[in-house]
Simulated scan of single mutants.
Amino acid sequence: MELNIKHDKKYQQFTANMGNEDAELAYATPSEEVIDFTHTFVPESARGKGVANKLIEEGLCYAEENGKKVIATCPVVKKFIHKNPDYQKLLK
């Protein structure tokens, strides 16, 4: 599934348009060096298709490219990082 993921710094989220609803990965920035991924949402019609994983990868790549450490408050993000050891170096 090809996704067009957009990063909205003002609203602190990565979004993918899924038709009627957007899938999103929301975050907070408790400090300049840290990004806390707080919430993942995928519309029911798009679940099970890897959408959340693509959003999470996009968010983690953004963190890495910008030298930020990651907090995974969202259990989906936490599980993704646990299953993908390459991203564990980003954890705060």
Results as ranks from 00 to 15, higher is better:
M1Y: 06
T38K: 11
K83P: 00
K49F: 12
M1D: 12
Y87V: 01
K92Q: 15
K69T: 08
V77D: 06
V70R: 00
I71K: 03
N17D: 15
Y62T: 02
F37T: 01
A23F: 04
E21F: 15
H82M: 13
E2F: 12
M18E: 08
P30K: 04
L55K: 06
I56N: 05
A52C: 12
Q13P: 00
S45M: 08
L3W: 09
E44Q: 09
E33M: 11
K78Y: 06
F80N: 03
M1V: 13
I35F: 03
E57S: 12
F37L: 03
D86C: 02
E44W: 03
E24M: 10
T15Q: 13
A72V: 06
T15E: 12
G67P: 00
A23S: 12
V34M: 07
F80H: 07
F37S: 03
K54E: 11
K83V: 08
T15K: 10
T15M: 09
K10C: 00
K9T: 14
E44A: 13
S45W: 00
N66M: 01
Y11R: 14
I56K: 05
D8C: 03
K78S: 14
E44N: 08
N4Q: 15
Y11V: 11
T15Y: 11
A63T: 06
K68R: 15
N53V: 02
E24T: 10
S31G: 09
A16H: 07
V34H: 07
I81R: 00
Y87L: 13
K79G: 05
N84Q: 05
Y27A: 01
